[in-house]
Design a protein around this nucleic acid. Sequence first.
RNA 1: CUGGGUGUGGCGCAGCUGGUAGCGCGCUACCUUGGGGUGGUAGAGGCCGCAAGUUCAAGUCUUGUCACUCAGACCA
Length: 479
Amino acid sequence: MANEKKMVEQITSRDEDFAKWYTDIVKKADLIDYSSVKGCMIIRPYGYAIWENIQRILDARFKETGHENVYMPMFIPESLLQKEKDHVEGFAPEVAWVTMGGSERLTERLCVRPTSETLFCEHYKNIIRSYRDLPKLYNQWCSVVRWEKTTRPFLRSREFLWQEGHTMHATAEDAEAETLRMLNVYGDFFEKDLGMPVLRGKKTDKEKFAGAVSTYTVEALMHDGKALQGGTSHYFGDGFARAFEIQYLDKDNTLKYCHQTSWGVSTRIIGGIIMTHGDDRGLVLPPAVAPVQVVIVPVQQHKEGVLEAVEALRARLAPVCRVKVDDSDNSPGWKFAEHEMRGVPIRIEIGPRDIASGSCVLVRRDNLEKQFLSLDGIEETVTEQLRAMTAALYEKALANRTARTYTATSYDEMLTLASEKSGYIRAMWCGELACELKLKEEADVSSRCMPFGDEDAPSDVCVCCGRPAKKLVYWGKAY
RNA sequence: CUGGGUGUGGCGCAGCUGGUAGCGCGCUACCUUGGGGUGGUAGAGGCCGCAAGUUCAAGUCUUGUCACUCAGACCA
């Protein structure tokens, strides 16, 4: 009991102070360190390894769907950024500028990319001539800079890592299909790999990306009931193509404008994983992205034969998972707590008693139940437990979302739910910006998503103004 | 940007009405222990965020400044 207490005191309780709990985990699970530049974080090896796993999985899916990686410059001349009006208006307030080169003042200042639409457009203009050149399906992994005023590790930093896909298509239909295809790549990644249920749907005009015709989102709900946009996919129509004069000669020998998309996910995902699955003992990592999936903790490791047996087990498991032995000098209890803090999905304890009986103890991070198992077929057991853990994480997160999803059919009900509950509020909307602004002002909720696959309209009038409504919107507060 | 909180060894903190800088954890060495943060002995480690000011004397008081953090407003 004394030990139990000591352990819990390591981090702030999740339900008492969610924000502090979050920053405690980020630091104590050794994901990041603060740097001397405000809003810029050092991603430590353990945190970066999570990002590498995210990259590896998504990059493979991008390639399976025909995309190629490129690298664009990190600087954008001011005149280039200015070319698309809505775009520059959206980003201008938060761009960082380079004005000097060595001791010389630059004749034109350079923006540090906040996103690379304009760079891709300039390049596409130069390489697209014919319908035979289309589609162009490019992606880049890089960092971007947005000069945020308030910052939080992973959730809002001034520099962050991401990927941005930028594609050019001959027709609007092609581009729209691409937008939804990539939205689903993201959605499947969240649900099947990260165990995070998401709403897939469309953003309202107010919430859409600067310069986009339409913006789609995968929206996840955090443990505290606030939403997090996990990934985003935009359809641009030919707006940028007209601004940048990106045209191709079609089969009918006429010049046509290209249709364009962009889509991205960022290191923000890591913040989402923490806030979805983490608990009072620390991080809980979905096996797909955990740097270490199985940690073996030897018991009485200095007794003869223990480390040998442990190494034999590690070698057996290595082909089926990312496995590590913790043979440090710390006590087993210390190691248990440490690896729980770091969110390692599976721990295997093995000591002289187990070795004598050909067994081991397996503990899954999400339920912390001790299973006493035979070493026979341990490879299959571990594989199965990793799979089961992802499914269990998904179910737990889904249960949280279901419990936190409310429906409002009147304005009063909307106000009451918004002030008393934390989560999604399903309510009909007329489509007018005025109502969206009013709900933000008076209920302090924003439209998160107009999801696909929820056709169950709770009423036929706008929750705000009472006029006829067709759109079902999930409202809520967001990170 | 507005409003709160906090800056003291690596981390967490104490330091009262100014008077020679402390505790716990961690760290190093050795021993011990090991199935939920073992126990012991001996060590190392501090321009008290930064800059001015008041004072015989500043971690402590004043002003400024920077950073982190929380809650809003804005954005991925």
